[in-house]
Design a binder for these strands. Structure first.
Lengths: 338, 338
DNA sequence: CTGTTAGCGCGTTCAT
DNA sequence: ATGAACGCGCTAACAG
């Protein structure tokens, strides 16, 4: 109940505050006798050092903040796993912030985190241009995760090679002989979605496949919208032999809709997808051929990079990490047969 | 770069620190002229109030800590959604801690949170007895989520009526005429699992059904273990017409294993499950008859309760919230036919 | 309405 | 090896 401070311990142990401070932070010389007295006092009084005060004087809080657009999607959850474990390893505590896919919330989150004097911020940017973020973030070390805001140049990034990943996921279908391929893509506001789509255009060009836009549906990055797109797409499902979903939600929507319509994968139609995540298997009963974001590793890399920046303390040089998606052969794709 | 403090603002605006403090915290009277000068100085200097220092003097940090055994499971992710949104509404920032299902980690997490002087803690206890937790938590307000540690009596709890939920989920099968029912249950260390299992015994008793333990498999609460249990259970799948999984992982394991074996749900076997979560639909393509934890609401309730405790400041009375699972009719259960 | 003073809990000189 | 004094950035109490 009574807040025990370093002073109380000092009095109890009959030494000065400095001495207590020395044994707690393990710096400087302390005689064994005093050390024992202090440790006993700490035990007796149930003293717990006040990190707030400590941060105030040391000018570093050993905390980092994470801004994530959604909390309840498996992908971000998996990434949080990587972030938390790596943060723990480097002795940071983590503030979590749900930006709710809103630029306003994001700005507010950054402001609050800075007011709390976090040592650094990891952000999956909602603000696609990055103007609001830049204004709010000041000189606090920051690592951008997944997407690069278009107006921000020399920044620290951890991202995945979306272009190559998308190519691979699509080529799987082509290599199996599919020529007519339906697609679900994401809205173009994010660089990730643009890159993935560009890969589709390039691949089709390269293989001489005609990209029929009637069978390319666009959706927002949530289940509802993707499910709707899947509905529309599957209405014409006789027109193509395979589907490539450029994102996770499309895949989920497709599987659900296919089931409801009695369309069997892969018997009636093949399916390849992008942006699954490490633990996808554990929640998705179907084995889907997909190109996966290394979600846990992404979180870890972001923290490692951030830590490095905080340490070096020089905001001059920036560095980026480009990770590679891992291709997973599933059972959702079969050879094309007429 | 240079850390701007209230003092800098004061000098710049040619007023005293107190005046700056007054306009920032919007307390006390300030003349319009000074207010304008201060606001301008703040803008000019890019001043951001230091929450650390503020917390130090006000003796409350407006932060809460969450200790959760796993981060990468959809259920907890969904719960985090509720926690974060409600915390935000009450102006708390949240520290997240991954206890990794380890009592040691849990203890350490609590200690770190207390050192950070969080105003309260929400914990999904790993320590089933609660001795470690009790020792570490001291007098910090705390809300226990989901499970009640066996040795802790008058505590603040948010839990779900596992017994009734389990009854309902099982009775669905019985009402459809199923008499031979395979089961996957969870290890007995958690009160939730005990309650759910007790419900099974009672229901079988009541309906005169013989609970054949050969077809009841026990698993840990993770995918791997549950998948193994599913494998074993489905080896005998001709022996029963329906399966009831007492937890989410069992359900996931069953669906996966059924698919791999070519067993169709519900054609070959009916399936009912407990402990899905609000957004289950968005990631699970199959429509499963299940009794769901109100995951988002649970998170919200926990924060509300915690906030209330912090406010009232009296650790004397404790209160509990008992939520009810919501039954969802799916397409995984059909009438029994011989 | 405003400035001065004191103190929150701690680390860090600097003497001793 | 240890203690006294100062300051981190801020709020609260008081005086004016």
């Amino acid at each position: 109940m009574p807040n025990i401070s370093i002073k109380d311990v000092a009095v109890y142990a009959k030494v000065s505050k400095s001495t207590v401070s020395r044994v707690v932070s393990q710096k400087g010389y302390v005689s064994d006798s005093s050390r024992i007295a202090v440790m006993q006092a700490i035990e007796e009084l149930g003293y717990s050092p006040n990190t707030l005060a400590r941060s105030l004087v040391s000018n570093q809080s050993k905390t980092i903040g994470i801004c994530v657009p959604f909390l309840n999607t498996p992908f971000f959850a998996s990434m949080m796993e990587g972030i938390e474990s790596e943060a723990d390893r480097n002795d940071y505590d983590v503030f979590i912030y749900h930006t709710k896919d809103s630029i306003e919330q994001e700005k507010r989150a950054i402001e609050k985190l800075i007011a709390r004097r976090v040592d650094g911020i990891i952000i999956i940017p909602v603000d696609t241009k990055g103007r609001q973020i830049k204004k709010a973030i000041g000189s606090t070390p920051c690592v951008y995760l997944i997407r690069q805001p278009s107006e921000l140049q020399s920044i620290n990034m951890v991202s995945v090679d979306d272009y190559m990943g998308s190519r691979n996921a699509l080529e799987v279908l082509i290599h199996k002989g599919h020529r007519k391929i339906g697609m679900i893509r994401g809205v173009d506001v994010y660089s990730t979605m643009r890159d993935r789509w560009r890969a589709c255009e390039d691949v089709c060009n390269q293989y001489g496949i005609d990209l029929d836009l009637r069978y390319v549906k666009t959706s927002e990055l949530n289940f509802k919208s993707a499910h709707l797109a899947a509905k529309e797409l599957l209405a014409d499902y006789k027109e193509f032999s395979a589907i490539y979903s450029l994102h996770y939600w499309g895949c989920a929507g497709l599987i659900k809709e296919a089931r409801d319509r009695g369309i069997q994968i892969p018997r009636d139609i093949s399916l390849s997808s992008f942006e699954a995540f490490d633990d996808w298997n554990t929640i998705m009963p179907m084995s889907i051929t997909s190109n996966r974001y290394p979600s846990v590793e992404m979180g870890q890399s972001a923290v490692k990079l951030l830590h490095q920046i905080i340490q070096s303390d020089s905001n001059i040089s920036t560095s980026s990490v480009l990770l590679h998606p891992s291709f997973q052969e599933g059972k959702s794709v079969v050879e094309f047969k007429d």
